Simulated scan of single mutants.
Amino acid sequence: MKVMELVGPGLDGIRFAERREKDVPLGHVRLKLKAVSLNYRDLLIAKGSVPVTYPCIPLSDAVGEVVETGVGVGRVKVGDRVCPTYYPDWIDGTIATEKFARDRGWHGDGVAAEYLVLSEQELLHVPAHLSDAEASTLPCAAVTAWAAVTRHVTLRPGSTVLIQGTGGVSLFALQFALAAGAETFLISSDDEKLARAKALGAHHVLNYRANPQWGAAILEQSGGRGMELVVDVVGAGTLEQSVIALSNGGHISQVGVLGGFAASVSLYPLMTKEAHIDGIMSGSRDCAESMMRAITHQRLRPIVEVSRQLTDLPEALLHLEGQHHFGKVTLAIDH
């Protein structure tokens, strides 16, 4: 079968290759993949920013059709359209080290291939109303956003939510917050993207480059109420402003490290607001299944801006690195 491989650090270390298809053992299925989508962590892995054992098949998010089942399979059947979970070993319950020790495309092969053989326990049925490109975006970005807006907070109509940026996780968080009836605030440095976010339903938008003290500006926009939830995708460089924007008792869902892995924050404002910073490591299969039901019920559609072919992976990662995207970048797999 055809695959994309990482053979060394850097985007010039991506190559097209052939691998032998695996047998289908007890409790496993063979998936014919239809589309994959990109996440920022895929760029970090491809560039060698984290340790990788080469050669490695990259990427974590995909959708495919079950074309063969092993003995004892009962969760899925031939013809079902499914996506693999992001963390194969996190089925349910709270986070634990052993549940996220293995993820696709980093600690083992990922999904940039024509076929995969996986345990049926790692699979999720996808909403029928979504295209293959849309469905491929769900395992990491959508589940992370769902966890960010549901795990430690209960959003109600009128709850205030601030979202940073217009990437995949951010726009999923916007859609989920809007579906809950929240009043939404979104920041970006790009006025065109802010206009597009407004068209998607964001109630208030702000250019953070034009307003470096955007925490206070958001506080003012909310009439002094502050944010019950901030979905922070950056960390370093934004965390202090996120705290300023919070309401008393508010929560920050820390879902990204676009600004790096180390951040500092003044403790006193955190204390006086009795604020919470909640780390989010995506979610379990149970969490993902709850999200799938919500997407189906609300008829939500992921925002897919760019759709290319799997062989365009290096160019697609460059597009991601340049932060030119609005929503998700996906790649189709032709057979």
Rank of each mutant, 00 (worst) to 15 (best):
G93S: 13
V76R: 05
L43D: 08
Q121S: 11
V50P: 00
I95D: 01
F100D: 00
Q121L: 12
A113H: 11
L44D: 06
C56T: 15
A128Y: 05
I45D: 12
A112M: 10
Y54W: 12
V126K: 02
K47M: 13
V66N: 00
L118V: 12
W90C: 01
T94H: 00
F100Y: 15
P58I: 06
K99A: 11
Y115I: 04
V71G: 02
G79A: 05
I57P: 09
V73L: 10
Y54M: 12
V126T: 08
G72V: 04
D61F: 02
T69G: 11
P58R: 03
D89G: 10
T85E: 00
F100A: 07
H107S: 11
L118T: 10
P84A: 14
E68C: 07
V63G: 02
K47I: 07
V67P: 02
V82P: 00
R104T: 01
E65F: 02
T53N: 15
P55H: 07
P51I: 15
G93I: 00
L123R: 03
D89M: 13
L43N: 07
G74R: 10
V76F: 12
P88Y: 02
S49L: 15
G79Y: 11
V117W: 03
A133L: 14
V71H: 09
F100W: 13
R104Q: 09
V117K: 05
A112S: 12
A133K: 13
L44G: 05
P55K: 07
D89V: 06
E65C: 12
Y86T: 06
A101S: 14
E120C: 06
R102H: 15
D132V: 15
V63L: 08
G74I: 07
V126Y: 01
W106F: 15
G79I: 01
S60R: 01
F100K: 03
T97H: 05
L118G: 06
P127N: 03
V52F: 10
L44K: 13
R104H: 10
C83L: 14
Y54H: 11
V67A: 08
E65V: 15
D132W: 14
E114I: 04
T97Y: 04
A62D: 03
G74P: 00
L130P: 01
A113P: 11
Y87V: 06
L43G: 09
R81Q: 09
E122Y: 02
I95G: 00
Y54A: 14
Y115Q: 10
V67I: 14
